[in-house]
Design a protein around this nucleic acid. Structure first.
Length: 952
RNA sequence: GGGCGGUUAGCUCAGUCGGUUAGAGCGUCUGCCUUACAAGCAGAAGGUCAUCCGUUCGAGCCGGAUACCGCCCACCA
C-alpha cells in the first residue's frame, strides 16, 4: 500500500524538487537544430541588475514571460528564453564603495567589523569614505573588488528565478560584462564613432555630486519642492538705479555673466546695452536682450549663469558671453565664486549669499515658490547642471528608423497607448550623454596621444599613434570614462546571441519574437534596443513589445522600502507556494492596469492550488484501487500515441452526457485561453481556467461521475467488464467514466501548467502514463480536437443544472437544508422531461432529494412551494415542515417587484416602433421571448401571493 | 505648461462588437465536518456603473463638459 496522499497541498515539498530537476535535465534548452514546421520562439530576458534583489515587479514580469514561454513551448514551438544579468554600473559601484567605506570606518574606529547601520546618514558617510578608499586603492583593484562582489552576490537573481520556475535556458546565461559581450560593446562604439555619430564635447550635463559622474537626462527625476524666489538688485555701473532679477538659486549669481531681458519688453528698453554690477563678486556684466526671456515671469529680467544652467548656456552661446564656473564636481563653490564662498557647499553658499545680499540691502523681497528640482535616480541627490567634457551619441539619425518601425507596426507595442508615448518621446529626442565617470563598466575604447593630441578610437589597445608615429605607444593616454550601462544593454538582443560573430544562434533566434518590460525602462532600454538593433542588425530587435503593469500594494500605493509596504516575493513564495503567487499575479494582470497586490489575494489562490491537489488526490486515490489490467488500459487511453486522445470522441453516442458536456466546455475554454494569451490578457486566461477547473470540472463534472468512479474502484476486476461504465469505453475495455475523467483532468492540467507549473508537473507525473515522458511542460497545450464541440450536450446539461440549482435553492429558502424532501418536476417539453427521467438518480443525489415524480402538466399557478425553474419547467417540493407564509410572501413580493421592473422595460421596448424596425431581428426576438417568459412568471407570482394572502 | 489614465458591490478589480436581468475574488449572512478538499460544500444579501449633457431604437461601453484621484513628459529663471 502506497503512502497516503496528503490532504493539504504542501508546495514546499514539491516545488524545489521540480525546479532542480528542470535545470538538471536542461529541459528548457531549445532543440539544437531547426525542424520543418517547428518555428523558433525567442525572448531575451530584461536583464536584472546584479545588485538587484527580486521584487514583486520582477516576479510579475517573470511570471508573465514564463506563462507565455511555456504556452508557446506547449504549442510545439522551439522556445528560447535567454537569461542574463546587467552589470548596473552606478548601482554596483555605489554598493561596493559603501561596503569599502563601511569596512574602513569600522577598522578606523576600532570596532572591528561592527559599524552599526544608523540609517541614511551613516550610509552617506560610508559612501564618502568608500570613494576615498576607491581612489586610494586604484582602478584595477577596485574593479577586481566589484567582480568579487558579483561572484558572491550576483547569484541572488538566478536563485530566485530558479525558485520561480522560470523556464529559461541556463546554458545560455549571459552577463553584460562577459568578454564576448564586451567585444560587442567596443565594436558598436567604434562603428558608431566611425560613422560620425559619437562625438566628444563640453556641454552642460546633469552632474551627480554624490555619484561623481555625469548622468543622462533620463536618469534625472524631477520633483516639485517648496522653495523661494529671491528678487535681487543688480545696480547699474553708473550708479543710476538697478535692475531686479528673480532667481531660485541665488548662489549661482556668483557665476553670472549677464542679465537678460526680452527684446520686446518696454520696461527695459533703455537698460539693454548698459552694464550692471553683479553684487558680491562685483563683476561688471551687460544687460542683453534675448527672446528666451519671458517678460511675464518675475521681473522680466533674468540673471545669466552660463556654466550652471542649460538655458543660460544657450543664451551665452548666442551672445558670446564668458562662462564662469562657480560650483565644482563635489557641489562646492570654486575659487571663482570669490574668497568668501570658496569651498562652501552649494546650499551653505546659498544661505550665505542671501544673508550677504540682505545685509547690503540688495535683496528686494522673497517669495515662496514651488520649484522643480532634478534629482539623481540612483542617489536621490540634487543634480547639478555642470559644464563638463563628455561623450555623446547623436540620436536623430538613429531615431528616424526606430520611429518608422513602430509607426508601421513592425514593432507592435501593447497596450497601444504606449505607442504614442514612445513616438512622442522619439520625435523630441536629444543627444545622449553616454560617458560616465565611473570605474565599473565598459571603458570607452579611446586613447589620446599626449604628443600630438590625436584621438584614437580602436577595437584593440593601439600600439602607437598613427599620426605622430609614437611607435611605443608610451604617450597614449587611455580614456578613463566608462559607458552608460544602458549603452551596453541596448545591444542585448543581438550581443547575447554572439554578435558580431555570425553565429548560428543569431541566425536562428534574432529577432526576439517578444519583449516584455515595465514602462519605466521603455526609453532607457526599449527605445535604445530598437535603435541599435536596426542600426547593427538592420532588423528590429523584437516584433512585439508588451508593457506590463506595476505591482502596487493593496491600497494601490507603490511598493517602496521607505513606506514599508514591500512584499518580498521569496517570503510570500515560501509561505503560499510559487504557484499561488504566480496565479495571483496572473489573474490580476489586466493590460494597462496596475495591480493591487496583497497576501490575501495569494491566499485565495493557494486555496485554488489546494483544490487542484485534492481533485488529483481524489482521482489518484481511487486509481490506486483499480486492478492492474485496468490501470494499463487507462494508461493506454491517456497515451496520445495510441491514437485515442480526444479524437476517440468522434462517436459522441458512446459518451455519457456529462462527458460530452465537459469535453465541449474544455474546447471552448482552450480556445478562450489561446485567444486571451495571444493578446496578453493574462487575467482572462487565468480566470477562464480557474472557473473551469473549480466550478465546472470539480463542482459539476467530478460530482456527477463520482458514483461510477468510486464504484468501479471498489469492485473487483471481472465485474468491471460489464455494465454501462464499460460499454461506453472507446475500446470497450477500459471503463469510460475513468478514462474520460482522467483525460479531462489531464487536459486541465495542461491548460493550467503555464500558470502553475509545479503542482501540474507533480500531479501529471502521478497519472498512469504508458510511456515515461520527462515533463508536462513538453506536452501539448491542448488535447481536445475541434470535433468535441457539442452544443446539444451543453444545452441539455445546462437544463439539468438549472433544475438541480432550483431544487437546492428551494430547499434552502424553505429551511429544508437538513432534509431530503421529495419533489415533482412539471415540464411541458417532452424532451426535457425525458432528460430529467434519464438522469433522475443524479438529480436526486446532487440536489439532495428523496424522490422525484414527473408530470407534463404544469401545476396551477400559486400552488404553495412551487418554484419556477425555466420557461417550461416548474418544481414542487413535498415536505412536512410548516410553510412560513410570512417568509414566502416576502420572497414573492421581492420577486414580483423584480419581475414587474423587467417586464415594464421589455414591454416598453416592444412598444417602441423604432426599436422594432431598427434593432437586429435576433435582439427583437430575444426581447419578445423574454417578455413572454416574464409575463408567465408575473402571473404565477401574483397568484402565489393571492394564495398566500388568503391561506393563513 | 502639455499629454495620458482612473472613478462599477463593504474592499480589490473584470466587463473586447453598444443589445435581454452588469460579473468575480475577498469580506458579510444562512445551513452543512456529505469518504478528494472546512484552505471545503450548498445557498443568500449587497450596484442610481462619479456627475451632467449629447449621439443612438438601445449607453457601464461612443462624444462633450464638470468634479475628484493618479501617472508621465517638459531647459520658465
Amino acid at each position: 500500500m502506497e503512502a497516503e496522499i496528503p490532504k493539504v497541498y504542501a508546495p514546499e515539498a514539491i516545488e524545489p524538487r521540480w525546479a532542480r530537476a528542470w535545470i538538471e535535465e536542461k529541459l528548457y534548452r531549445p532543440a539544437d537544430d531547426d525542424a520543418p514546421g517547428r518555428p523558433n520562439f525567442c525572448l531575451t530576458i530584461p536583464p536584472p541588475n546584479i545588485t538587484g534583489v527580486l521584487h514583486m515587479g520582477h516576479m510579475l514580469e517573470h511570471t508573465e514571460i514564463d506563462i507565455l514561454m511555456r504556452w508557446h513551448r506547449m504549442r510545439g514551438e522551439n522556445v528560447l528564453w535567454l537569461p542574463g544579468t546587467d552589470h548596473a554600473a552606478i548601482a554596483t559601484q555605489m554598493i561596493v564603495e559603501r561596503e569599502l567605506g563601511r569596512e574602513a570606518l569600522a577598522k578606523r574606529s576600532g570596532l572591528a567589523e561592527q559599524v552599526e547601520d544608523g540609517g541614511p546618514q551613516s550610509k552617506a558617510a560610508w559612501q564618502r569614505e568608500g570613494q576615498r578608499v576607491r581612489l586610494a586603492m586604484g582602478r584595477e583593484a577596485f574593479i577586481e573588488r566589484c567582480w568579487k562582489w558579483k561572484e558572491e552576490n550576483g547569484g541572488t537573481i538566478r536563485r530566485q528565478m530558479e525558485r520561480l520556475g522560470a523556464s529559461v535556458d541556463w546554458t545560455r546565461d549571459r552577463f553584460t560584462m562577459d568578454a564576448a559581450y564586451t567585444r560587442a560593446v567596443v565594436e558598436v562604439f567604434v562603428r558608431l564613432y566611425e560613422k560620425g555619430l559619437i562625438y566628444r564635447g563640453q556641454y552642460i550635463v546633469n552632474w551627480c555630486p554624490d555619484c561623481g559622474t555625469a548622468v543622462s537626462d533620463l536618469e534625472v527625476i524631477h520633483e516639485d519642492r517648496p522653495g523661494h524666489l529671491w528678487y535681487i538688485r543688480y545696480p547699474f555701473v553708473d550708479g543710476s538705479g538697478y535692475v531686479t532679477v528673480a532667481t531660485t538659486r541665488p548662489e549661482t549669481m556668483l557665476g553670472d555673466t549677464a542679465v537678460a531681458v526680452n527684446p520686446a519688453d518696454e520696461r527695459y528698453r533703455d537698460a539693454v546695452g548698459r552694464n550692471v554690477v553683479v553684487p558680491l563678486v562685483d563683476r561688471v556684466v551687460p544687460v542683453i536682450a534675448d527672446d528666451f526671456v519671458d517678460p511675464k515671469f518675475g521681473t522680466g529680467a533674468v540673471k545669466v549663469t552660463p556654466a550652471h544652467d542649460p538655458n543660460d548656456y544657450a543664451i551665452a552661446e548666442r551672445h558670446h558671453l564668458p562662462r564662469v564656473t562657480v560650483i565644482d564636481e563635489h557641489a562646492r563653490m570654486t575659487g571663482d565664486a570669490g574668497e568668501a564662498y570658496c569651498g562652501l557647499d552649494r546650499f551653505k553658499a546659498r544661505e550665505k549669499v542671501v544673508h550677504d545680499l540682505t545685509q547690503r540691502g540688495l535683496l528686494e523681497r522673497t517669495e515662496s515658490y514651488a520649484l522643480s528640482v532634478g534629482t539623481c535616480q540612483r542617489s536621490k541627490t540634487v543634480v547639478e547642471p555642470l559644464l563638463s567634457t563628455q561623450w555623446f551619441l547623436k540620436m536623430q539619425p538613429l531615431a528616424e528608423p526606430a520611429i518608422r518601425v513602430v509607426e508601421d507596426g513592425r514593432v507592435r507595442i501593447v497596450p497601444e497607448n504606449y505607442k504614442k508615448i514612445y513616438l512622442d518621446w522619439m520625435y523630441r529626442i536629444h543627444d545622449w550623454c553616454i560617458s560616465r565617470q565611473l570605474w565599473w563598466g565598459h571603458r570607452i575604447p579611446v586613447w589620446t596621444c599626449d604628443s600630438c593630441g590625436e584621438i584614437i578610437v580602436a577595437r584593440e589597445t593601439p600600439s602607437g599613434c598613427p599620426k605622430c608615429g609614437d611607435v611605443a605607444g608610451a604617450s597614449l593616454r587611455p580614456e578613463t570614462d566608462t559607458l552608460d550601462t544602458w549603452f551596453s544593454s541596448g545591444l542585448w538582443p543581438f550581443a547575447t546571441l554572439g554578435w558580431p560573430e555570425e553565429t548560428l544562434d543569431l541566425k536562428r533566434f534574432y529577432p526576439d519574437d517578444l519583449m516584455i518590460m515595465g514602462f519605466d525602462i521603455l526609453f532607457f532600454w526599449g527605445a535604445r534596443m530598437i535603435m541599435l538593433g536596426l542600426e547593427f542588425m538592420h532588423e528590429v530587435p523584437f516584433r512585439e513589445l508588451y508593457i506590463h503593469a506595476l505591482v502596487r500594494d493593496a491600497e494601490r500605493q507603490k511598493m517602496s522600502k521607505t513606506k514599508g509596504n514591500v512584499l518580498d516575493p521569496l517570503e510570500v513564495t515560501e509561505k503560499y507556494g510559487t504557484d499561488a503567487v504566480r496565479f495571483a499575479l496572473a489573474i490580476s494582470a489586466a493590460p494597462g492596469t496596475d495591480i493591487a497586490f496583497s497576501e490575501e489575494k495569494v491566499d485565495s489562490y493557494r486555496a485554488f492550488a489546494n483544490k487542484i491537489w485534492n481533485a488529483g488526490r481524489f482521482i489518484l486515490m481511487n486509481l490506486r484501487k483499480l486492478p492492474e489490467p485496468m490501470k494499463d488500459q487507462l494508461a493506454a487511453g491517456l497515451e496520445p500515441a495510441a491514437g485515442l486522445g480526444f479524437d476517440a470522441v468522434a462517436a459522441p453516442e458512446r459518451l455519457a452526457l456529462a462527458d460530452r458536456w465537459i469535453f465541449s466546455r474544455l474546447l471552448t475554454v482552450t480556445r478562450e485561453m489561446n485567444e486571451a494569451l495571444a493578446n496578453f490578457r493574462f487575467h482572462e486566461a487565468a480566470y477562464t481556467i480557474y472557473h473551469f477547473f473549480w466550478h465546472e470540472f470539480c463542482d459539476w463534472y467530478v460530482e456527477w461521475v463520482k458514483p461510477e468512479i468510486t464504484k468501479t474502484a471498489e469492485e473487483d476486476g471481472p465485474s468491471l467488464r460489464s455494465g454501462q461504465a464499460l460499454s461506453a469505453a472507446p475500446d470497450d475495455k477500459a471503463p469510460a467514466a475513468w478514462l474520460n475523467l482522467t483525460r479531462v483532468f489531464e487536459a486541465a492540467l495542461h491548460l493550467l501548467h503555464p500558470f502553475m507549473p509545479f503542482i501540474t508537473e507533480e500531479l501529471w507525473h502521478q497519472l498512469p502514463h504508458a510511456e515515461r515522458r520527462p515533463s508536462i511542460s513538453l506536452q501539448s497545450f491542448s488535447l481536445v480536437s475541434d470535433r468535441v464541440s457539442d452544443p446539444v450536450a451543453e444545452r441539455e446539461f445546462q437544463t439539468l443544472q438549472e433544475l438541480i440549482v432550483a431544487a437546492r435553492n428551494a430547499k434552502a429558502e424553505m429551511g429544508l437544508q437538513t432534509q431530503r424532501p421529495s419533489a415533482q418536476v412539471a415540464c411541458e417539453k417532452p424532451h426535457d422531461l425525458e432528460l430529467f427521467r434519464i438522469h433522475q438518480e443524479t438529480i436526486l443525489r446532487l440536489a439532495g432529494l428523496e424522490a422525484l415524480n414527473f408530470t407534463s402538466e404544469r401545476p396551477a399557478a400559486g400552488t404553495p412551494d412551487l418554484r419556477h425553474v425555466s420557461a417550461s419547467t416548474d418544481l414542487r417540493l413535498f415536505h412536512e415542515a410548516k410553510i412560513d407564509h410570512h417568509a414566502e410572501r416576502q420572497r414573492s413580493e421581492r420577486d414580483k417587484e423584480k419581475i414587474e421592473k423587467a417586464l415594464a422595460s421589455a414591454k416598453a421596448q416592444l412598444e417602441n416602433r423604432a426599436f422594432l424596425s431598427r434593432a437586429p431581428r435576433d435582439v427583437v426576438r430575444g426581447v419578445e421571448h423574454r417578455h413572454a417568459e416574464l409575463s408567465e412568471q408575473y402571473r404565477k407570482v401574483v397568484e402565489a401571493l393571492r394564495r398566500l394572502g388568503s391561506g393563513e
